[in-house]
Every structure is written in structure tokens, then in C-alpha cells.
Design a protein around this nucleic acid. Sequence first.
DNA 1: CCAAAACCCGCAAATTCCAGCACGATCCAG
DNA 2: CTGGATCGTGCTGGAATTTGCGGGTTTTGG
Lengths: 255, 255
Amino acid sequence: MLPQERQKQILTRLQSRGQVLVQDLVRELTVSEDTIRRDLKDLAQSGLLKKVHGGAVLLSSVPYSHRERLSLNREAKRKLANIAAELVQSNMLIFVDGATTTLELPAALEDLPLSKITFVTHSPVMAQRLSELGFAEIILLGGKLIKDLLITAGLDSIKQAEQFRPDLSIISAHGISVPAGATVESWEDALLKRAFVERSAETVVIAGQEKLGYEASHMVLPTEKISYLVTDASKSDCLGFQDKGVTVLHQVRPT
Amino acid sequence: MLPQERQKQILTRLQSRGQVLVQDLVRELTVSEDTIRRDLKDLAQSGLLKKVHGGAVLLSSVPYSHRERLSLNREAKRKLANIAAELVQSNMLIFVDGATTTLELPAALEDLPLSKITFVTHSPVMAQRLSELGFAEIILLGGKLIKDLLITAGLDSIKQAEQFRPDLSIISAHGISVPAGATVESWEDALLKRAFVERSAETVVIAGQEKLGYEASHMVLPTEKISYLVTDASKSDCLGFQDKGVTVLHQVRPT
DNA sequence: CCAAAACCCGCAAATTCCAGCACGATCCAG
DNA sequence: CTGGATCGTGCTGGAATTTGCGGGTTTTGG
């Protein structure tokens, strides 16, 4: 394979996934690590991507504040996303939000043998990531963009949301506690999420251990209505949720 | 075999495969490596291909997929975006599409002294880029995502589009010619763009020199309705448009 | 704090490139 | 017809590029 062809491949993958790992590229392009590194170095020198430890990322597509959060606790988030991915099945209609944890979901789904899944989301970034999945149909809700969160909100999006009855809603929360349930900081975000979870057959809440016990300002879903809680908190901290009928999925298997 | 015939063969193979290897050509055309090299050198000198270590690749292809185009001719696109940026003024309502050229627009606007501009777009990527601008309000049109183009389309988005009467529509085209006007390859994309330009007070079409004279399958805007044409084609190539009342903005100033 | 992973540097092998030369075919003026 | 100029082709040997590997160092995750 020509170096140019290989670098084009790398760029293509980068554009669609938003990030590439050296190891993945080694496997996918069947060349040595060093070659991939050299390619990444060249491409970085041409200003086509940014090299980071372990791979490379796009340079200007994701805004700053968001980008910072992206790399925070990345490892933990990926693991949580992997667990949540196991709940996804073919032919489902699924709502997903645009939080940084759920953003790891598309990568987690990538290699699973799935087909014909329709995703509904209000996050442009999520839509982009999902577009990489061959088996995904994506419906993006429109509306006014909340710049800090990079999600759309407003009456329009709620009205669009009401047309769907998802099999599964996968949401991330800013806080989760037994008395308050799942809560978020943004009123508009809460409104839209409520519109979905109320119509959803099952709901998954993903919340890292740092979210447990915290109560944010706007309620999304009371504890009783949560079908699954995906978390890396200790088992004992989750007993209260199990008493209320929530199935708790811990970070059990190594990734 | 005549050298001309051989070189034609090489070009044919290059067109169909996107790349050619010296070794393959040696086998297929049963001549020595050196001859192939000389051929490639000639063809490269005539600007018909690009020689690389081990073979040759296409140079001026305009691939259909959005992802492949992203990093192509970035510099030229940025210059065009800079020119188009001068048409943007405070308090406007502006529609922008998600083509790779227009994607450079946010960066071009970044340092201009503007305020309160509302952007409407059907491109999640564009929405993301615009969100970095402090003075921008962004409305993202929802709908089914066309994965290859990374834009939303469908009845929903068109209905949303009809609520706006933009001061300015900034669109990119796959082809532009005097008889056919601005044209694009995707029917759904054309539908949505039409919905906007028809309601727009003024329209800007951005088209690099390689798009000039080309006619894609779906009409967006006849030449008479184009307010401004932003291009880096030679002035003489644009005379036909000026006769029809189009203001042609050339790439004049150095960036 | 440790082990594992990722990184970087320099080297050697393989491949590819290139400049120069030789050979044969064609063309053309004498 | 003939000698020389020109062109296209193939060959050779040395230079340059690319690639994978071994080593020592840095970063990461737990």
C-alpha cells in the first residue's frame, strides 16, 4: 500500500470517528506501529490532525470547552459506555443524549453485530459519531443550539421529540440520588430528556461514581422509573437504587 | 506499443483505481521499470497525475463523499471563505450549508467586529463550528441525517426551513455554470437549499475554480437569482455571470 | 509507586528512484 | 544509399526513501 493511500485512510477514519488510536490503525492497516507514528507525525506537520498520546484527534471541529471535557476521565467513561452498549439490540429505536460519557457509546457499538438501529439525538456531536456506524439511522432534533452544551433545545425539539416512542433511552445525568432520581443542571436539557424518557419503554442512566449522591437543579427521572443504572460506584452505594427496582450494572468486566 | 498509447493506458488505470503502482504497471504493460518511471514523470510534468514513492495518485479529483473532501484544498477554501465573510453584517439572519468550503466560514468570521448574528444551518458540523463564535445564535434544522454528507434532510427540515426569511444565504455548489446556475449532486440537499434561497433577500454562491462549468444533477438556483459569486477562477471565466447581473467576488487580497 | 503501554531514536534491510551510458530503430540531409 | 542525429528503451550502480526492529525513555492507569 502506498503511504499516501494509507494516510488518506487515516484521515478518513479520523474524520468519521473524531479520533484514532495507533493500535487500531496498526490492526486495520496491517503495518507496524512505527509506520503509523510516522504517518501521524507527517499529517500533524501538515496541520491535518493533532497528535495525542495513543493516537490523534481532529483539531478544530470540537469547540474548546467541550474538548476539554472530552479528555477528562476518558478511560472511565469508555468503560461505562461499553457496559451500556450491551443493552443495545438490533431494530431498536433509541434516544441518546450528548453528554461526554454517552459520546463514547458509538465507539463501544462499533464492533458489535447489530443491524438497523434508529438513533434519535439532540446532540450534533453525537450525530456525527453515530454516522460512522454502518447499521445506524440517525435522526437529529433541530432547534436553537445551546452553545455551552452543544445540544439543541426549545419548543421545536420537544415537539419533534413527542413523535417518538423509543425502546430505550440512554441518558447521562449530572447528579443521581435515591430521593431525587436523575437530575441535570440545564432546564432546557431536562425538558427534552423528560419528553423522551416519559415515552420510552426502558431507560438507562449512565452516571460515574462522582455523580452519585449529588442532586442537580432539574429533575429528569425519578428513581422508580429508571430501568438500568450504569455506574462504576461501589456496590454498596447502589443498594438504595436496587431497593427501588433499578437494575444496577457495575463496571464488572475488564476492557 | 507507442509511448502515447502506454501513457493513455496508465491514465485509464489511474482513473479507475485512484492510484497505480510502478510494479503493477511493469507487469501489466510488459515494459521496464524505467520506462514506466519516465512515463509517470512526463505525465506528472503535464499535471495529469501526482508521482509518489512507489507509484502515482490522482491529484484533482473531487470525491463525492463529504469525509474525503474535508481536507482537500483547505487553503483555497479558506481564502474563499474569507471573501464571503465580508458580506456578513451584524443583526443578520443567515443560512449556511455544510459544505467543506462554507465550513471555513466560522474561522473567517472569528475576528470580525460583529454582533448578534443568527445562523440557520442543516449541518451538525457547521453548528459546532459556529458555536465558537461569541456573537452567533445558532438554529440547527433537525431531520434524518444523510450519513455521507453529514447534513439533515427530509420533510421535517424543509418545514422548519420555511419559517425563516434570511437576509443572506451562503451556499456552496458542486457545479456552477451560466445556463444551469448552481447545482448539487444530492436531491435532498437541493430541496432544502432551494427552500432557503427562495426566501432569502440575497444569495451567495461559493464555488472554487474547479466547479466552474460543471453541471451537477440537481438545480439549486438559476444564474439570475445569484446575488454574489465567490470564486478563485480567472476573471475572464466569470464574464458570463456578470452579464446576468451576478456580482463576482474574486480572490483579490492576499491572506 | 509500579507495571504496562506508548513514545522516540538510530540502525539495517529492502525497495524505489535517478543519472548516466549503451543499443537499436527511425528519420533525414547529403 | 549512407552517415549522423534523434528518440525511445533497457541496464547498471549509487543515492534516497520507506519500513520494521531493538534499545532506552516517558507517560499512563491502577
